[in-house]
């Protein structure tokens, strides 16, 4: 099995990400927090590599562990931030935060396990299969606009498609979707997986205008940062 896509990689990087994220929250010194943060982002990038999203993993490392962390370090050293008391010394806020985050995480788990195919018990209560049951149970025969409903046409009785198992990446099967004679198509047909080119294809065709907007947002942010940091000379 390919090392990059093995389960072990996921579990190792997931453990590193969780441990170093906890260190970010509970370290006294902001500099060590920032260092732990960089490693945590790197581990998230590792999980992305394991998912087959190589370009996003590289961007995660370059932008987050690279640029953003360096900015944070600059500001920490520029402002001469002192180490604060360990958050564990003040148990009340920690307990409150744990409860709030725990409730949030519980709700999130509820949503995750109601995804189609996530668990056998929830297949009966998941919204996809409920529609047909509701139609049968409530004996609905027509839509609000007056059209007849026939269950054979809807055929929602069959179980919803499971989206839990990740489909295998198979570049050769996808080659036909891309224009004839293009380099992406050639590479896909030869069995390579040109992830960056595929992201670029999506960005520069379907999301062209959004890309321009993102560029404008970055420009505005740069100008804003300069304006905010300017010293006011009273005149």
């Amino acid at each position: 099995m390919d090392l990059f896509t093995s389960n072990l990689v996921f579990y190792v990087f997931a453990a590193i990400a969780i441990v170093f994220s906890l260190m970010v929250v509970f370290m006294k010194n902001p500099v060590s927090s920032a260092m732990a943060m960089a490693i945590s982002f790197g581990a998230v990038a590792g999980v992305m590599f394991q998912l087959g999203a190589h370009f996003m993993g590289i961007i995660q490392i370059l932008v987050y562990s690279g640029a953003v962390m360096v900015l944070f370090m600059f500001i920490i050293m520029l402002l001469n931030v002192k180490a604060e008391k360990s958050p564990l010394r003040r148990p009340m806020p920690v307990i409150t935060a744990m409860v709030i985050a725990g409730v949030f995480f519980g709700q999130l788990l509820g949503i995750i396990y109601s995804l189609p195919g996530a668990s056998d018990e929830c297949n009966s209560c998941c919204p996809f299969s409920q529609v047909s049951e509701a139609i049968v149970d409530l004996d609905i025969t027509e839509t609000p606009t007056g059209e007849e409903i026939t269950l054979t046409e809807i055929s929602l009785a069959e179980p919803a498609n499971s989206i839990i198992n990740l489909p295998e990446i198979n570049p050769q099967a996808a080659a036909e979707q891309y224009p004839e004679g293009s380099k992406i198509r050639e590479e896909l047909a030869s069995g390579e997986f040109p992830d960056t080119a595929l992201v670029g294809y999506a960005v520069f065709t379907k999301y062209n205008y959004v890309l321009i907007l993102a560029g404008i947002a970055l420009l505005v942010a740069t100008i804003g940062a300069v304006v905010l940091c300017r010293r006011h000379t009273a005149k």
Binding site: F10, I18, V24, V25, L108, L109, I163, I164, N165
Partner: peptide
């Protein structure tokens, strides 16, 4: 590894950030 596990990892990281 299924989608559920990735989503749970993402949820854990988000909750730690919230804390």
């Amino acid at each position: 590894v299924t989608l559920t596990q990735y989503l749970i990892l993402s949820g854990i990281l988000f909750s730690i950030g919230l804390v």
